[in-house]
Amino acid sequence: MIETGTDVIASHIVWDWNGTLLNDNDAVLAAVNDVCAGFGRPALTLEQWREVYMRPVLKCYEQVLARTFTAAEWAEVDRLYHQRYDQLFSTCALAEGAVDLLKAWRDSGRTQSLLSMWFHNQLVPAVADFGLDDLFQRVDGLRSEVGGDSKAEHLAQHIEAQGLNPASVVLIGDVVDDALAAAEVGTGCILVTTGVMSRTSLVSTGAPVADSLTAALALLPTRSR
């Protein structure tokens, strides 16, 4: 079980993007299956992908494709995945109720920001296209050329850049790595089942688990951190 909080009520939410605020599961699965095809593996179902998904994502693909990767091969995995994902991004929609929930949190006088492991130069315009940029006091994506690593260091930098006390922050995300990052940095964490990880895996962290963003936010007023 992961220890994910202290006894302070959260005044700032760090939102995850993919699978949390953005419903992109269909695009993710299509992109994963392009990788599988590129390495001669049959396609996966969403449930199969949820059962094996982990970070660092390299380990996940090594398990799925039953091989280890050279640096060049891992770069090819990343290329195949993002080529297909980018093609399908326009078909993705925000999670149900996301805009109203974000506005309500902002209008309550509390603050929020967005931290994603998706590439920063794509994340920022996407957030603007969805009309969300004025709802966050900071938006950070991945600034390296190849993704897939842990979120912890990025979360620490994201919080420090805003001058926040980690004990006043709760991270809302959809994968085990969100809980691991929160525990390492000292923030709270609530996980949602709307993304690419099984409920069993999420529950195993010890973090609260909700089936929607509305349910996740409903945990905050009664949950001490």
Rank of each mutant, 00 (worst) to 15 (best):
K103P: 00
W118E: 08
Q63S: 09
T68S: 15
L142I: 10
H158K: 13
L155F: 04
L114W: 02
V170E: 03
P42T: 07
R138E: 12
V124F: 03
G148A: 08
E76D: 13
M117R: 08
Y61K: 08
L102K: 02
T111N: 10
D78Y: 05
T91R: 04
L132R: 00
Q137C: 15
D149C: 09
R79T: 11
S90R: 12
S168I: 00
S113W: 04
E76G: 00
C60N: 15
D133V: 07
A152W: 06
A66P: 03
V146D: 04
D107C: 11
S116F: 02
E51I: 12
P56C: 08
Q122E: 15
L155V: 10
R79I: 03
D129G: 10
Q63M: 09
Y53N: 12
L135P: 00
R67D: 13
W49I: 04
E51Y: 14
Q63T: 12
W105V: 06
R41N: 12
V77A: 06
W74Q: 08
A75F: 08
D107A: 14
C92H: 02
A161W: 05
V170L: 10
R67E: 14
D129N: 15
D129V: 06
K59A: 15
E62Q: 15
L101E: 07
F119M: 06
V99F: 05
S150D: 15
L171T: 05
L101S: 04
L115E: 06
L155M: 12
A161E: 11
A43T: 12
L46K: 13
V52H: 05
H120Q: 11
A71Q: 11
G163Y: 00
V169R: 00
Q112C: 02
L115W: 04
L102M: 09
A126N: 06
L58T: 10
L80M: 13
L65N: 05
R67V: 12
R106T: 11
T68Q: 14
D133E: 14
A161R: 14
E76N: 10
V146Y: 07
G148C: 08
L115F: 11
G40S: 13
A98L: 01
D140L: 04
S116K: 00
I159P: 00
E73Y: 10
A126Q: 11
D140T: 13
A156M: 05
S168W: 01
R41Y: 14
R84K: 14
R50P: 07
S113A: 15
I159R: 01
L135R: 01
F39C: 13
C92D: 06
L102E: 02
F39N: 11
L46I: 14
R110N: 09
A156S: 11
G40C: 04
V64R: 02
R110I: 00
D78S: 14
H82E: 12
L123N: 05
F69Y: 02
F130C: 07
A152F: 07
V127W: 01
L142N: 11
L142H: 07
T91L: 10
S90W: 03
Q122L: 15
D100K: 10
V170S: 03
Y53T: 06
Q122P: 06
L132E: 02
A128P: 03
Y53W: 13
L46V: 14
H120M: 07
R110L: 09
E62V: 10
E76Q: 14
E145G: 08
L58D: 06
Q83L: 14
A167Q: 07
G148V: 03
